[in-house]
């Protein structure tokens, strides 16, 4: 009440700084956000809306290099195009031959599986996505692609390129998605040695040209140049896709485990386009027997459809 103040006394409001309080409130909010983001995937729409808000900026950064690629493509000379065309025709012809054989083998495989009464292999469809020229974090191997939830992309979806397994989807927004590469230090993929079927896990090293296989005993049957394929035990990656080639095997007698390095077959650091794969739910043998037909219900809406049973 102002009447209680002595006349003539200067009113000096107490200087209480709320800076610390505000900082604490904001820090608490951030921690809440971190927890929600870490634990509650049902609140993923918060993240999705924020990342979609960031999308225009990311595309703006991507635009100059995209324009440059378009420009060089448009400016290609007739001779360049002709040689490229020749090469592509040659490649297409040899691929066609191999495909013919593959189809025969696949039919045989289906027949054998039916004989064994085993579950049918996963049918799949795929779609090409472009990698955005955006640097997310130099030490984390993550990239953005231009396909998102509206194209049917989901979290945990496998991504491959022309040479092998590339990574998996970690975050999805309506327009785009973030992919974690095989070489990210926090990524691991279950693999199998093609030669003898030995199963192990390939872990990213933070170097796009190296994967490490830290869980192999010293006497494991593994040699340089062995090929690693995905084993499909994680239920994320389809089995049988090439993952890496063994570069180096070190067996130190004083260590129980061998130290093994492999080189990913996918061009992790050079790709501009990758393929998203959709696996259809594994159907149990009983269900498959009950409903003889398993064709993909929605395998026709993607431009690059390859339904393989």
């Amino acid at each position: 009440m102002p009447a209680l103040r002595e006349p003539g006394a200067r009113y000096a409001p107490p200087r209480v700084s709320t800076l610390g309080l505000r900082a604490l409130a904001l820090i608490a909010t951030s921690i809440g956000l971190l927890v929600v983001d870490y634990r509650h995937h049902e609140l993923a729409w918060i993240r999705a809306s924020l990342t979609s808000a960031a999308w225009p900026l990311q595309s703006a950064v991507h635009l100059p290099s995209a324009a440059w690629h378009w420009f060089t493509d448009a400016g290609a000379t007739r001779a360049q195009l002709r040689t490229e065309n020749e090469e592509l025709k040659l490649a297409a012809r040899s691929d066609q031959l191999r495909l013919l054989r593959l189809e025969a083998v696949q039919r045989e495989n289906v027949r054998l599986l039916e004989l064994l009464n085993a579950t049918p292999r996963d049918a799949e469809k795929s779609q090409v996505a472009t990698i955005l020229r955006v640097d997310l974090d130099p030490l984390r191997h993550r990239v953005l692609i231009d396909r998102g939830a509206r194209d049917g992309v989901t979290r945990g979806q496998p991504v491959i390129d022309a040479h092998g397994v590339f990574g998996q989807v970690t975050n999805v927004s309506p327009i785009g998605a973030e992919i974690i590469l095989l070489s990210d230090p926090s990524h691991a993929i279950p693999v199998q040695i093609e030669r003898n079927g030995l199963r192990t896990i390939a872990v990213g090293t933070g170097d796009a040209l190296r994967l490490s296989l830290p869980y192999l005993p010293r006497n494991a049957d593994i040699k340089v140049d062995d090929h690693l394929v995905s084993s499909g035990l994680d239920g994320i990656f389809p089995e049988g896709y090439p993952v890496a080639r063994i570069l180096e095997v070190k067996r130190d007698p004083s260590q129980p485990l061998a130290s093994v390095l492999a080189e990913p077959t996918a061009a992790l650091d050079r790709d501009r386009e990758v393929m998203l794969i959709w696996l259809h739910q594994r159907v149990s043998a009983a269900e498959a027997a009950a409903a003889q037909v398993l064709p993909a219900p929605n395998s026709n809406d993607a431009p690059h459809t390859s339904a393989a049973r």
Partner: peptide, 10 residues
């Protein structure tokens, strides 16, 4: 975080 962070809020 929306642009590049692995976790939201850090």
């Amino acid at each position: 975080d929306a642009m590049r962070g692995p976790s939201l809020g850090e």
